[in-house]
Design a protein around this nucleic acid. Structure first.
Lengths: 124, 124
DNA sequence: CTGTATCCACAACGATACTG
DNA sequence: CAGTATCGTTGTGGATACAG
């Protein structure tokens, strides 16, 4: 390895960085968002910005309260999502992405693009 | 599709394509590779090319026979991976990516890059 | 080498209902 | 609005052993 410059042209080839080491960025990334709903939730937050619980629930489409709740808790633990109480009287909460979470945008975008190009028919 | 509205400048904003419809490319993509090991396996196949079972098992690092077997079967069902018997006498098999599977490269690369940039310390 | 056979544990998911 | 409580099902992961 010349010098493992992480970005830019290093992308043209998928090489080393995992050789010999016992961790791998793909593995680690997958452990954070490699779940059925996590990428979708992050995506909705990217798309719609900070959202309330039910707003998110509606946007995510098909997720149950419990699963959304679990997922958000998990994303919080991982430092990808922030939960802020914006109002006590009418109890309102806002979920938003942390910087860490926002940085996932390229990943989510690539997933979206792939889905758009290769899965135009979900019935497959 | 070089015309892809999906890439390039379209990325600056994450908008529509999911509005009103009951499917979403992110959801669908996540349902295919939104698992702990799937992206890693696909990555290894991208990196090392067609691989045998144990070769893959070694490369994936830490995965058990059962889980790898299960995952490969799942990836096959999804049309992302092909399994070819290359030799009967000394029984040898080769797993390789289908075109569909190879097309996931940008997604895997983005996951790798994100991991490299944001998770230099897996201990976090 | 290429897996399968078990068994087990636990996480994820899902539906429904219900509370503050 | 923002969740929790339950319960049940399925999926995922991991260890060990064994078979073609």
């Amino acid at each position: 390895m010349t010098d493992n410059s992480v970005d830019g042209d290093a992308v043209d080839e998928l090489e080393v960085w995992c050789a010999g080491e016992d961790w791998c960025p793909v593995t680690t990334t997958a452990s954070l968002i490699g779940r059925k709903w996590h990428p979708v939730i992050v995506h909705r937050l990217l798309e719609h910005g900070p959202s309330g619980f039910n707003e998110l629930k509606t946007n995510v489409d098909g997720i149950s309260s419990k699963v959304l709740s679990d997922s958000l808790e998990n994303l919080e633990e991982k430092g990808l999502v922030d939960r802020d109480i914006v109002s006590e009287k009418p109890f309102r909460v806002q979920y938003s992405l942390t910087e860490h979470g926002e940085s996932l945008e390229p990943v989510i975008v690539s997933m979206r693009d792939w889905g758009l190009e290769h899965l135009t028919e979900p019935s497959e």
